[in-house]
């Protein structure tokens, strides 16, 4: 028998597949079969017992649902019946809008805080008080002031993603080694050139780490925010399917939330590797 040697990654992948299959089989086996309606008396049927009872669906149902949804992700059949692609698209749009606005505020402000000890000391108390506030706590205030649920959701994303970016940018900029700044000084670089040619690349790994944490938090928060504001988005979709008692769709959308979150995170992981440097 020829001996097959697999690399560590291949063996790990094999193990993952085995665990997935075993897990799905256990799940499938644990769901009791529905009693068929024909075996019931008319009285039982009249009492509604013959109806499909809402229960946790077996994985085969979820897979079928996933196939059905993913083969036509962008259909739009009215306010409460849109394809998963459209719902996720709305969520990503909100996350990115709020997130980019937050980056536009947090990164320049973080630079300022990192470069000026007085700005750091002056702004630190505000940051420390505002940072631990749950982003959803802002929702009523946002709804009252902005008077628009869509913009309020974006504001919630903005407020939750600003802090990790702000703090990491300030930390990264403050931690740039004096030697590198001295190199800029002895080469007569102006402050703008120093910021872009020395401080930004030196602090980039820390800044990108903050951005990665922020996008993770933003994706966590958008689901909850959309459950509150309703209308569109993956969070609303989950809640809507719960109201429909369609647990198959709920489980499918939960998986989709995980997949999109993973993709967003790996995009930043890629960016992180691109700006990393070894001293």
């Amino acid at each position: 028998m020829p001996s097959v040697t697999l690399s560590l990654n291949q063996r790990a992948a094999l193990l993952s597949i085995v665990m997935l299959v075993v897990g799905l089989l256990i799940w499938e086996a644990a769901i009791p079969a529905q009693t068929l309606a024909t075996e019931l008396t008319e009285y039982e049927r009249l009492m509604g017992l013959g109806q499909e009872r809402a229960g946790v669906p077996p994985p085969s149902d979820v897979l079928a649902k996933a196939w059905e949804q993913l083969s036509d992700p962008f259909y739009d059949a009215g306010p409460n019946d849109k394809g998963i692609g459209i719902q996720i698209g709305y969520s990503i749009y909100r996350v990115l809008t709020g997130y980019i606005l937050a980056a536009l505020v947090a990164i320049p402000l973080g630079f300022l805080i990192g470069m000026s000890p007085i700005a750091y000391k002056a702004l630190n108390p505000f940051i420390q008080v505002l940072r631990p506030i749950s982003p959803l706590a802002w929702m009523p205030l946002a709804l009252f002031i902005i008077q628009d649920s869509e913009a309020s959701a974006i504001f919630v994303i903005f407020i939750c993603s600003i802090w990790p970016m702000l703090i990491n940018t300030a930390f990264g900029v403050a931690g740039v080694r004096t030697d590198w700044v001295n190199v800029a000084r002895t080469h007569e670089l102006g402050s703008l050139k120093t910021a872009f040619m020395v401080i930004l690349p030196a602090a980039a790994p820390t800044i990108i780490t903050g951005m990665r944490i922020s996008i993770g938090i933003a994706w966590l928060v958008i689901v909850a925010a959309e459950m509150l504001v309703g209308g569109t988005g993956i969070g609303y979709y989950v809640w809507n399917e719960w109201n429909n008692l369609d647990l198959t769709s709920v489980i499918f959308s939960i998986l989709m939330i995980g997949v999109v979150g993973m993709l967003l995170d790996s995009a930043f992981a890629f960016l992180q590797r691109a700006v990393a440097y070894a001293e």
Binding site: D179, W180, N182, A202, V275
Partner: peptide, 13 residues
Amino acid sequence: RGVVFQNYSLLPW
């Protein structure tokens, strides 16, 4: 006035 620092001070990126 050019400077060569003890710890090289090259920009690592």
